Simulated assay, not measured.
Amino acid sequence: MDRHTHLGVYGLVQWQHKVLLIHKARGAYEGQWDLPGGRLEFGEKPEAALHREIEEETGLTDVQAIIHSTESNVVHWVHQGKPEEMHHIGILYHVYLKSDSQANEIRKEPDGEDSLGADWFTLEQVRHLSLTPFASHMIHGRS
């Protein structure tokens, strides 16, 4: 069985009692709803990676990020027909829009990479979604 560690940055973007989630296009969490974020590029600072990932996946460019915590979990999944274990480590942030006007301009279409699109959800709507562990932790306080 292949085993690897994945380190990423993820942000809970909040606006008017709603949270912004992306629909996962691939990977161990394919089909689930996740926080915008992803892998750090070589030499990239975590907060810079978060801003880059949020822009790539949602189109938002003017946000404020405040570090919340780090979390990790082990995910068992099948990748290209082979069982795999991934130790997923996330640096988690609370993210706020600096301008309300950009909330209506999020990218709802796929980014061609990891996201099938982003959307705003109320906490009531979130209860009916399949969330990734980091999204569940940040929204509900559990993994």
Score class of each variant (00 low, 15 high):
114 D>I: 14
82 K>C: 05
124 E>V: 04
126 V>T: 00
69 S>A: 15
111 D>N: 04
98 K>T: 12
10 Y>L: 08
26 R>A: 15
68 H>Q: 14
125 Q>N: 07
69 S>C: 13
92 L>S: 05
5 T>P: 02
100 D>V: 02
59 G>C: 03
94 H>P: 08
118 A>C: 11
116 L>P: 02
83 P>G: 06
20 L>F: 03
134 F>K: 05
103 A>C: 00
91 I>A: 04
17 H>K: 14
141 G>L: 07
105 E>L: 05
46 P>A: 07
128 H>S: 15
62 D>F: 14
29 Y>R: 03
110 P>R: 00
26 R>W: 11
114 D>L: 13
112 G>D: 09
109 E>Q: 11
98 K>L: 11
13 V>Q: 01
63 V>Y: 00
67 I>W: 15
71 E>G: 08
48 A>F: 06
112 G>N: 04
119 D>K: 07
81 G>R: 01
100 D>K: 13
74 V>H: 05
94 H>E: 11
49 A>H: 03
2 D>E: 10
106 I>Q: 08
66 I>E: 13
116 L>R: 08
76 H>P: 00
76 H>E: 11
117 G>D: 10
12 L>Y: 08
52 R>M: 01
13 V>P: 01
126 V>S: 00
129 L>G: 07
62 D>K: 11
101 S>Y: 12
53 E>H: 03
108 K>G: 12
115 S>N: 05
110 P>F: 04
89 I>L: 12
89 I>R: 06
75 V>R: 06
7 L>N: 11
92 L>D: 02
67 I>D: 14
43 G>W: 01
77 W>Q: 00
10 Y>N: 03
75 V>M: 11
83 P>F: 09
100 D>G: 07
27 G>N: 00
87 H>F: 14
98 K>A: 09
34 D>R: 07
126 V>I: 02
116 L>N: 08
118 A>M: 06
11 G>C: 10
37 G>A: 01
34 D>N: 10
40 L>E: 13
9 V>W: 04
70 T>C: 09
12 L>N: 06
87 H>I: 12
53 E>I: 03
13 V>K: 06
12 L>Q: 11
25 A>R: 13
